[in-house]
């Protein structure tokens, strides 16, 4: 199973400049995917766990830890906006 992961550009310094990676064995959920990414980019996991939302296959999910990822999923790590 492979998913494509996109990072917002302010995360570049944690990803060695990459804004997009393919993850071959992402695990079943976003949480597992984050753990996987943290192994590859140390420190990224902590950053992604703190208030980061994802856009998963076109839908913004504010608290995505247990959201399932599927083969071919497009995962965008974005930010959770606040509001007034």
């Amino acid at each position: 199973m492979t998913v494509r992961v996109h990072f917002s550009s302010d995360l570049r310094r944690l990803t060695g400049g990459l804004t997009e990676v393919e993850v071959a064995d992402p695990g079943a959920t976003v949480k597992a995917l984050v753990a996987n990414l943290d192994g590859r980019f140390p420190g990224l996991g902590e950053r992604l766990s703190a208030g980061t939302a994802v856009m998963l296959d076109g839908e913004v999910i504010a608290h995505p830890d247990y959201e399932p990822v599927a083969d071919g999923s497009e995962v965008y790590f974005i930010h959770q906006p606040s509001g007034g």
């Binding site: 996109h6 990072f7 917002s8 550009s9 804004t19 839908e59 913004v60 965008y76």
Partner: peptide
């Protein structure tokens, strides 16, 4: 968008 994700 600015963060690199597509607009719905």
């Amino acid at each position: 968008n600015t963060l690199g994700a597509p607009f719905p």
